[in-house]
Amino acid sequence: MSTILNFTGTLLKNLVSKPVTKNYPEEPAVYPERSRGHIVIDVDQCISCGLCVRSCPPRCIKVDKNEGTWTINRFDCIACGYCASKCPKKCLSLVPGYQKPGRSKAAVTYKKSAEVMEAERKKAEEMAQRKAAAVKAAGEKKAAAQTGGQAAGAAAQVQAAQAQAAAPVKAPSENQ
């Protein structure tokens, strides 16, 4: 069975019907809700743990804990969403809307607000102090218990002093 001109009907219909394509960019594109467009971050929630940095397949994220910054090179990001699934604070999410073209592969940096940085610094300090105080108290208690026995007391004091020296360095990392 073979015919000719059997596409003519479709052609005629297409001639009189509206175009199926959109007049983009005059008419904006509509993305579905799940569209994986680009990553957004709620940077004040970020605890700079670096899990996203290590999980990102093209390695396009950088995190600087001291500066409180989170940097992404959107030109390298493949919008896979793996970082968002790994983030312990759930502060990353993939939202609709594609990356704009550009002349160079520039990275974008997000910085935590001054208040959050200040609050974090204070909290870290407070924790360090509290920890130091706790260690000191424990050391004194031990020393007091051992005032009778002289030989062991000296060793305990050395231990307590060592712990005190180590505490301020260790405390901020445990806090964050």
Partner: peptide, 12 residues
């Protein structure tokens, strides 16, 4: 495909 997975070509 785009509506259900979020991508037109790469489903992820």
């Amino acid at each position: 495909i785009e509506e259900s997975t979020g991508g037109r070509v790469i489903f992820s």
